[in-house]
Structures are given as C-alpha cells and as structure tokens.
Design a protein around this nucleic acid. Sequence first.
DNA 1: AATAATTTTTAGACTAATCTAAAACTTATT
DNA 2: AATAAGTTTTAGATTAGTCTAAAAATTATT
Lengths: 229, 229
Amino acid sequence: MYICYLVYIIVMITLTEENYIKAIYHLGNYGKDMVNTNAIAEVLNTKASSVTDMVKKLADKEYLNYKKYQGVKLTKNGINIAVNIVRKHRLWEVFLVEKLNFTWDEVHEVAEHLEHIKSDKLIDELDAFLEFPMYDPHGDPIPDKNGKFNKIDKIALLQAEIGTQYKCIGVEDTSTNFLQYLDSNSIGLGTTIEVLHKEPFDNSVKIKLNTTEMVVSQNVAKNLYLKAL
Amino acid sequence: MYICYLVYIIVMITLTEENYIKAIYHLGNYGKDMVNTNAIAEVLNTKASSVTDMVKKLADKEYLNYKKYQGVKLTKNGINIAVNIVRKHRLWEVFLVEKLNFTWDEVHEVAEHLEHIKSDKLIDELDAFLEFPMYDPHGDPIPDKNGKFNKIDKIALLQAEIGTQYKCIGVEDTSTNFLQYLDSNSIGLGTTIEVLHKEPFDNSVKIKLNTTEMVVSQNVAKNLYLKAL
DNA sequence: AATAATTTTTAGACTAATCTAAAACTTATT
DNA sequence: AATAAGTTTTAGATTAGTCTAAAAATTATT
Ligand SMILES: [Mn+2]
Ligand SMILES: [Mn+2]
Ligand SMILES: [Mn+2]
Ligand SMILES: [Mn+2]
C-alpha cells in the first residue's frame, strides 16, 4: 500500500526580500549582470555583512545564484519577481499623479510602500483603470501583466551631441530634490533640449531650452535622459 | 551659559503595533472599554503571552493604559491612531469596489494591507477622489480627516421585532464566506427585511425578503445589521 | 612575486515579534 | 474559606533582519 503525500510549500516572500531582489535587478542591468555586495549595501542603506546574510537566504530560495566572493545574479524566477514589483511601483506612481494630484517628485516614496501590496486582481484592475499606461511619471516603461515592456533607448544629456535636437524622455534620479530642480527650470518630460557647449573642466553642459539657455552640472547631465528628435 | 537641546524623538509605529491598536479599538467598543488579553490574542491569532509583551510596549509608548492582570484601554492618542487606520481601511475598500470592480467580499483582505500605508496626502486625496464617502461597502461609517464619524444605530437581525419592516444597513462579519452567502440569497445593503418567526429552539429566524421567504441561522442573524424603516 | 588596499565573509551580539511551558494571579464553585 | 478553573504573566527560546569588528579572499600596486 502506497501513501502519496502532496505537500504544498508556500514560500512567502518578505518585504525585505522583495527590496533586495528589486535592488539587484536594477543594479544588474535588468538582472543580466553580476552584482557585488557593496553595491547592494549602498543602495539599500545597509552594511555589506547584512547583504551577505540576505543573499544566502535568497540563494536558498533560488531567487538568485551566489558564489562566495563572486557576487550574485538573479535567476529567471528572481527576475520575474523583480519585474512584477517594478510593474506595481510604476503603476502606483501613475495612479498617484493621474488620479490623486501628486506631482512627479512626490510619488516615488509612497510607491516604495505600495509596491509591496500583494494582490494580482488589485494590480491588474489598477492597470485597466489607468488604461494600461506604457510609462510612469518619470518616463520609465511599465511592464504589462506578462512582464513585457519596451526598454526605451535613451542617452544621458552628458553623452548628447552638440547641435542635435533632443527631447527629454526620462530621469535616472527620482528624488524630490532633483525633480524640483527640474521643475523650477521648466524641464520636464517632453521638453526640447539642444546642447550648446560642453565644458571639459567640470563636465557641465550649456543647453538651450524652448526660450532660455542655461548651464547644468555634470550631476544633472548624468541624470537626465534624452532621445534625438 | 545655558545650552538648550531640542530633541525630536520620532516614534515610528510598526505595522504590528497598528494591528494591535486597531484590534483593541474594535474589541473595546471604540476604545471606551477595557479589553482583556485573551480576547486580543484570539482576534489577532497569537498567544496570550505575545499579547502581554506587546501590550507592555504599547503602554510604554502611551498608546494605552495597562495594569497587570487588569486588561488594557486605549489612550486618547491610541484611539486617534486606531480611527485613522479604520479610516484608511474603509476608504481603500470603497476605492476597490467603486473603481476597481472588486465585490464586497473581496475587499477586506487587501484593505488589511493597504491600511498601513503611511501618507496623509495619499489618504486625503483618495478621500476627495472618492467624493468623501460616508460608508464603506459593508455599511460601516468612514471617519473624516478629523476622525469624526456617525456611529450609526443599528440592530442585529437576531434582536429585530416580528412584523416590523427593516432595511439591511450593514454586516458584522466581513468574511468572504458570509458575504457570498448573502449574495447567493440576494441579501445586500438596502434589502428590505421583515421577521416572520423566531424559532426558540435554535434561534434561527424566518424572514421575508422582497419576493421570497427564507430561514437563516442564529449565526447569520447575529451578523446582519438592520434599521427600522 | 610580494605587499598593500579593498571587498567580502564570518563570528558574535542585538531588537522585534513570536512561541511553549511553567508560575502567578483572579474568578468561580463548592 | 478552600479548592478548582480560568486567565495572565514570566522565563527562556526562536526567527528575521540588522549591526560591529575581525578574519579571509580578491584585486591593485609596487
Ligand atoms: Mn519610483
Ligand atoms: Mn518612476
Ligand atoms: Mn474590512
Ligand atoms: Mn468594511
């Protein structure tokens, strides 16, 4: 006589684990590259030793591959989880801006929390309610329910050519400080930008906007994404 | 020479603490009555010893008053926190039903998570977006941004009088099972109900709906709230 | 190739939230 | 008033996530 046990092991993923997976996804170029311990520690504001501990746990759960001293790389499963968190994060950001009168500099922090709410129905209905937006308020693409999205091709202002006409299509840094700086200089998604001069001394960039000219620092130029018109 | 230090101690409240405070609020009749350890343990699915530990912490933080063996009672501050969580919970429930096509039996679980998102702007804008709803999908009143709400007066079907015409205005139990039972018997908020007979043997109640008659168990009769027409 | 600098891991400790089992206290029953 | 039953608290562990400080491994520099 045979007794057959069918055991479902429900692996709950914690909020902290989700944050690590998301960080590794972003640091590792959509999960494709190896990511090292210190880099993770820096973006998550923890210590390297904490990262080592967590990374072992995530390897146990097969969200990533880990070999001592060699850094980590997400598995297929890990990437799926990361993409789903990114989807939720960006959809919530759209919701906050489109429906609740948030400005683009206010949404990221709240979305950091909302992205961890677990309900497929919630997120798919939210997606439909927002009419399946393709981009979030910072110009980042939103994965669909199957995880598909367009990796838009963009260059940082720092790499832009003198004389070419560009359109601003995204930002790297989504901090309130940076976004409010852009607001106060009338730079936003869709703004037309032309590079007039690149200063080799400090890598600052002189640009021409619709009506005005201004100089932005290297830091700004690194964090602003453009597309040639 | 005097040196004056102004120290802000930011007291973060954890998700777990919030759940305890909310449970104590509901168990203690809007925070007015003493609540005992076992009751808290039961609704939160924990052990009495865990409750004792947490209750000491909440007393330290002055969310409640606690004397050994005497149970706990929320402070004014504790009640404010509870009311705010209830506000968030119920507003999210309205959002899910009104905007995202959730049914009334699907919302409670998700709202249990959404209620812990901390952003005043988020919740006040949500309130406005929903056009300041007064009641949630289960007939419960929604506190406004100052914590004010109408304690609606309602009686359980079990206490209703024979012959009087009532309207269904709320439910006690918000579980999927109970709400789907009501759905399948065409009972919802606004349904007209008349008591035809109360069976002393098992406390079941025979009721008349719009077109049909049916018998409901004591358990159902306890969990359905009515108002005389 | 040896040494120095940097990165990563281990060892051991801490906090929040939980548990079991036993002790202490309160309330109900005889 | 004594005993029994029930409730609550304590004591001691456990797990998740974090930390500091020291050890080990890797990488860069001489
Ligand atoms: Mn964001
Ligand atoms: Mn974004
Ligand atoms: Mn609810
Ligand atoms: Mn409700």
